[in-house]
């Protein structure tokens, strides 16, 4: 952990030297999130709610995803480098150092565009929380936080797992991870708007439903609220699976010819 933050910190300093880049990336993040908000507002100008989800509730879902999707590049961007590292044999040095390979890989990049997502996602969620009817008690806050952390862990675990696929599917680009990342974008909206098959897949197969939907179902007291409390369990499973995949992947690592 210490090693990870040291590497990340060093890279943050070096990335910040490119100020223009930084500004552009933040603005890009902001615009992308705002565009989504405009889209959502346009729909709700026509209908009062979608499958029982009000505008504020939908904004909360999108906001929560914005926060998670913003934290991910800030703290986890390095994971996206794993496929070219495998392809180019760039895991050689991390493997001979006395620190976890994952920490070295994850810390090696910092995606500042996350700041934009974080700002808009945070504002959306912040506003929405004041609009939805939740009776806040210390316990709700505590569980809410636990569910949020678990949700983020699930997201990051699956970013990891899909990127690690490059150990088995050789190639310099993380195609599977990119595809799955785009698919995960669907959790920006309440899952109820999708068909049964998709909902089932997102719950059982790849538990993206636990990244936003189920934790908020619990918070908002919707049907199946109890399912939200499974989020930490799903998180534990996801983290375990990611670690296991990493171990197995490293055993297959072949370096490069020179």
């Amino acid at each position: 952990m210490r090693v990870y933050f040291r590497i990340l910190g060093a890279h943050l300093r070096s990335t910040l030297e490119y100020e223009a880049d930084f500004a552009i990336m933040v603005v890009a993040g902001l615009l992308f999130q705002l565009l989504n908000l405009v889209f959502l507002s346009a729909i709700f100008a026509q209908v009062p709610h979608i499958n029982g989800w009000t505008y504020a509730e939908c904004v909360l879902v999108a906001g929560m995803y914005g926060i998670i999707a913003g934290l991910s590049p800030l703290f986890f961007e390095g994971m996206w480098s794993i496929s070219w590292r495998i392809n180019k044999g760039e895991l050689d040095y991390p493997l001979i150092r006395p620190a976890p390979v994952a920490a070295q890989v994850i810390g090696s990049r910092i995606g500042l565009h996350g700041v934009g997502d974080l700002i808009v996602g945070g504002s959306m969620a912040g506003w929405a929380v004041t609009q939805v009817s939740v009776s806040w008690t210390p316990l709700t806050v505590a569980i809410g936080l636990l569910l949020f952390v678990s949700a983020a862990a699930i997201h990051l675990s699956f970013v990891t797992i899909f990127n690690l696929a490059s150990f088995w599917i050789p190639g310099p680009h993380p195609f599977l991870a990119i595809t799955m990342h785009n698919i995960e974008d669907m959790v920006r909206y309440p899952l109820t708007i999708y068909g049964q098959g998709l909902r089932l897949a997102f719950t059982v197969l790849v538990p993206f439903a636990f990244v936003t939907f189920f934790p908020l179902v619990w918070l908002l007291g919707k049907p199946f609220a109890w399912a939200g409390l499974l989020t930490p369990v799903v998180a534990l499973w996801s983290v375990w699976l990611a670690r296991f995949t990493f171990r197995r992947g490293l055993l297959r690592y072949e370096s490069s010819g020179h």
């Binding site: 060093a10 890279h11 760039e90």
Partner: peptide
């Protein structure tokens, strides 16, 4: 590995 550096490229 003489062919490759272990230094962090941007640091």
């Amino acid at each position: 590995f003489g062919q490759r550096t272990q230094l962090w490229w941007d640091l």
